[in-house]
Each structure stands twice: as C-alpha cells, then as structure tokens.
Simulated scan of single mutants.
Amino acid sequence: MMPETVEEAVNALVAMPEAVPVAGGTDLMVAVNSGTLRPAALIGLGRIAGLRGWEYRDGHAVLGAGLTLARAGRPDFAALIPALAEAARSAGPSQTRNVATIGGNLVTAARHGDTLPVLAALDAVVLCTGPDGTREVPVGHLLTGMDPLRPAELVVAVKIPLLHAPQVFLKVSGRGGPSRAEVSVAIALDPARRAVRCAVGAVAPIPLRPLDAEGWVSGCIEWDGTRTIGPDACQAFGEYVAAACVPETEQPPGQVAEPKSTVDHRRRTVAALARRALGRVLS
C-alpha cells in the first residue's frame, strides 16, 4: 500500500495493525533478509510529499521524517544544523544515504545510528501522528521507551531548536563496517543558556547524555569573553564524559564480561573524541 497523505497512512495502520511502515527501508530490509522480521504487510511512505522537506517555526527547524540523509548532508542544511549534516554525511555510502531517512533512524533506533546522538544533544522533539492526532515526544523519551510510539502512530517530523552557535559531530568507525560507529560524540554550544550539550553514541543501546560533565564544563567557560578554556579543562572534560558513559561495572551473572582491554579502549576513544569535539566548538 502506498498512501499519499499521513491521514491515509494512519488509517491503513488502524485497519492493519500488523503492517510495518517503510520509508527508505535500509534497516528494515536487513532484518527481512536475515529472517528476523517477517512483516505481514508494508505501508510505503514514499509518496507523502509533506514528510520530505523542512521548515522554520518559532526558532526551530522542523524536519520531515522522510528527509533523506543525503539531503541533510548538503551545504545549505549544514549551515542550519552543522552537526546533523556531518552525521548524515558519515552514515554509510551514497546508496544508503540516498534512501535512509531521519525518521527511519529514530524508529529503528540502532545503537550505531549516527544522527541519534546529535538529536539527543540538541534536545530534539519528535512529532508523532496517530488516530488521536499529533503529539510531541522528547527524543530521549522515545529512544528510552519512556514514551514509545503508540498503536497506529507514525513519526512525521523532528523539531530541533536553532542554537546559532558552533556544534560538532565526530565518530570512530569500528569492526562492523567502514561507516558503522564504534563511538560517536556530538557537542553543541547553547549560548542563550550558557551551556554545553553533549551526547555519546554507539557505546550503549541509546545515546547517553553526560549531564554532570555538561554542567561542570559549562561552568568553566567564560561566556562573556572568548569562550575558551585551557587544555587541562578539555582533558578533564573528556575523562569526565568517558567515566560517565563507559563505566566499569560488574557483569550480571550468566553473562560473559567484556575484556578489560575492550572497555579501556572504548573509554579512551570516548575521552579523545569528547576532548577534540569540545576544542572544536570553542575554537
């Protein structure tokens, strides 16, 4: 089925609760081909033109859920939300970026999804439409399952505050493929609130916000001056973020613990990326 409006798509989901909506299908088809997903029916969202663009609204950018990563990586979009554009450009080969969508990243919520830490760091809000209308869900609540999608509900847009300040996305790719993140870090300055926002991706099932580290480094910055801090503070921030996001924890009974060398490597990588990203947004 190929509905042409969001209302038609929602009605189709009400009529066929077992159906699966599909936009780019990059992750869905991997699941289908591996045999882990056998959808009873597919509802294609590719004809819904309103899902593919973006607009400005009350100091926010509202991105349609069908906006492709290829489109989000272009220079005009990079001038709007540079960290998200950089994440989009790094998300695999052009064949993938041409069809993968912002909304698909959110719904799939894969731990290596490059756009997710950026959306988390920017406190994005997800617009979901279902039989009861449209509601707004903080991206963190959606990804953690605190406020998941409801029956017959679709992700239709993402609302992101425009901070008009430097922001950076960095990642290190791992063994899963040349573009699959082993660790990713997004950092943005929020001058209006005199705050640094940070999120770390790929080290846990969802992006992690090291809030204590954010608060500490925000207090170190001279917001009325040059917005610079010393190398020791940058180093300390990286270690603070790493300790928060890659803690040393005991493995639950019956599970095989990761080698200490693996945990130490991941912690060092997080620290290095966080330190480097902070230096870039403050330079």
Rank of each mutant, 00 (worst) to 15 (best):
M2C: 00
T5P: 08
E7A: 15
E7K: 13
A9P: 12
V14Q: 13
A19M: 12
V20F: 03
V20Q: 15
V20L: 09
P21I: 06
A23R: 10
T26N: 09
L28G: 07
V30I: 13
V32A: 04
N33I: 03
S34A: 15
S34Y: 04
S34H: 08
R38T: 09
I48Q: 07
I48F: 04
G50R: 13
W54A: 15
W54E: 15
D58H: 14
H60M: 09
L63E: 05
G66D: 02
T68G: 02
L69H: 15
A70D: 15
A78R: 15
A78I: 02
A79C: 07
I81D: 04
L84W: 04
A88D: 03
A88H: 06
Q95D: 08
Q95C: 13
T96G: 02
N98R: 14
V99F: 12
T108Q: 12
R111A: 15
H112N: 08
L116A: 07
V118C: 03
L119R: 02
L119D: 03
A121N: 03
D123A: 11
V126E: 05
L127K: 06
C128L: 10
T129A: 13
T129C: 13
P131E: 11
P131D: 03
E136Q: 15
V137P: 02
H141K: 10
L143T: 05
T144R: 06
D147W: 00
P148A: 05
P151E: 11
V158D: 09
I160Y: 06
A165T: 14
V168K: 12
K171A: 08
V172S: 12
R175Y: 02
G176F: 00
G177T: 12
G177H: 11
S184V: 06
V185R: 00
V185I: 00
D190G: 07
A192Q: 11
R193D: 10
V203G: 00
A204S: 15
P205K: 14
P207H: 07
P207S: 01
L208R: 12
R209E: 06
P210I: 06
A213W: 04
S218M: 06
S218L: 07
C220W: 03
C234T: 08
G238S: 09
E239D: 14
E239F: 01
Y240D: 12
E250D: 14
G254R: 06
Q255Y: 08
S261A: 09
H265E: 11
R267S: 06
A271N: 12
L273D: 04
L278F: 02
R280W: 02
V281F: 04
V281R: 06
L282N: 10
L282T: 05
S283W: 00
